[in-house]
Simulated assay, not measured.
Amino acid sequence: MTRRNALGGEAFLAAALFALVAGSGLAAEAPGARAWSAAEYQARLDRLQQRTKAFYELLERGERERAAPLWPEIEREIASLGDELQERLDQMRQDVMDRDGDLEELYRSSRWREPEIMSLVVTYHLAWVRYQGAQLAGDAARRKDLLQKAVRGFSQFLLVNEVPEIYAESLYGRGLAFLDLGETAKAIEDLEAATQAGAPAVAAKARGALEEARRRTAGRAAPAEKGPEQLLARLGELVPRAAAGETSAEKDATALARGLAARGGPWPARVESLVLEKLG
């Protein structure tokens, strides 16, 4: 699953997130409100979105070696931008509280909503970058940390269901992260919900991942300690046997291929490439 496939483009994401936080109208700015360059921050966000798009395109083409060095810096810069936006929101809230002002008026104002919308976009990107980064991380502890952070990021979009596509994508992303963390019951719960969230394109992807999660629960998966690289190697062993007509090998190869492809990112392309290679 890549960000590029998630919502059909950054323009839709920004518009949908705007709808998520939009109220009945913009309140007038408070007299003497501190100027804030939304354009400057938007330009930074646009540049980061272009870089994340290039990163996801590499993954879609299966170019893991080229993608691997890119994501750590992208993650750091997105996280840094998110921290700056959150600091601004916190400071504005504190300023209003210090003068015993109206927080609801602040929340309706454009000076609040502009950084809030950007913060939501950043949080969404960061969750997916961390999930995809976990697929490339060689260190087990680092991988686990990234997946746990991705879970927390996706969870922020599950408090309300105002925009079905974002809600469904966040359920799907969190379900994938839970699946990689070995928390299969939670993965199944999220993936089942994603298939029923009113977003058909997401439901189709979630069903494949849900099948893999259920397969693991039923005990038909490879041992939990085996990582995706080992499972891919196992698939490579099974494909020639399946092609030769061995029924059990065909069944196991099909299940492994579906499970690996459900991981998203580079895995669908890697599975396809391996199968074509083994079939000659």
Score class of each variant (00 low, 15 high):
Leu106Gly: 00
Trp128Gly: 01
Leu70Ala: 11
Ala22Pro: 10
Gln42Pro: 02
Asp190Asn: 08
Pro115Leu: 11
Ala201Phe: 14
Ala68Cys: 12
Ala209Pro: 14
Leu260Gly: 02
Ala204Ser: 09
Glu169Ala: 05
Ala38Lys: 06
Pro268Asp: 01
Ala222Thr: 14
Gln132Thr: 13
Ala242Pro: 04
Glu116Tyr: 13
Gly101Lys: 01
Gly208Ser: 12
Leu126His: 07
Tyr107Pro: 06
Arg111Asn: 13
Arg99Asn: 00
Arg51Glu: 15
Leu147Cys: 05
Leu231Lys: 11
Leu176Glu: 13
Leu276Ile: 07
Ala185Arg: 14
Ala204Lys: 04
Phe18Leu: 13
Glu29Ala: 11
Tyr56Trp: 12
Ala249Pro: 02
Arg44His: 10
Thr123Tyr: 00
Leu210Gln: 07
Ile166Met: 02
Gly259Pro: 13
Leu26Val: 05
Ala38Asn: 10
Arg99Gln: 06
Lys278Leu: 08
Glu183Leu: 11
Gly133Lys: 01
Gln49His: 08
Ala218Pro: 02
Pro115Lys: 07
Ala269Pro: 13
Arg61His: 15
Arg234Ser: 12
Arg216Gln: 11
Ala28Val: 01
Gly153His: 01
Ile74Tyr: 06
Leu260Thr: 06
Ala54Leu: 14
Gln91Ala: 02
Asp190Met: 01
Ala206Phe: 05
Ala14Gly: 08
Ala257Asp: 06
Lys278Gly: 04
Glu87Gly: 02
Gln91Glu: 10
Phe12Leu: 12
Gln42Ser: 12
Thr184Lys: 10
Gly208Trp: 06
Arg44Ala: 05
Leu260Asp: 04
Leu232Lys: 13
Val96Trp: 02
Pro200Cys: 12
Glu237Ile: 14
Pro31Ser: 04
Pro115Gln: 13
Glu272Cys: 03
Pro115Asn: 13
Glu229His: 03
Gln50Thr: 09
Ala193Trp: 02
Val271Tyr: 09
Tyr41His: 15
Leu26Glu: 06
Ala43Glu: 11
Glu277Asp: 14
Glu60Arg: 07
Arg216Cys: 14
Tyr41Glu: 06
Gly138Ile: 12
Glu73Phe: 05
Arg108Lys: 07
Gly138Asn: 08
Arg130Leu: 01
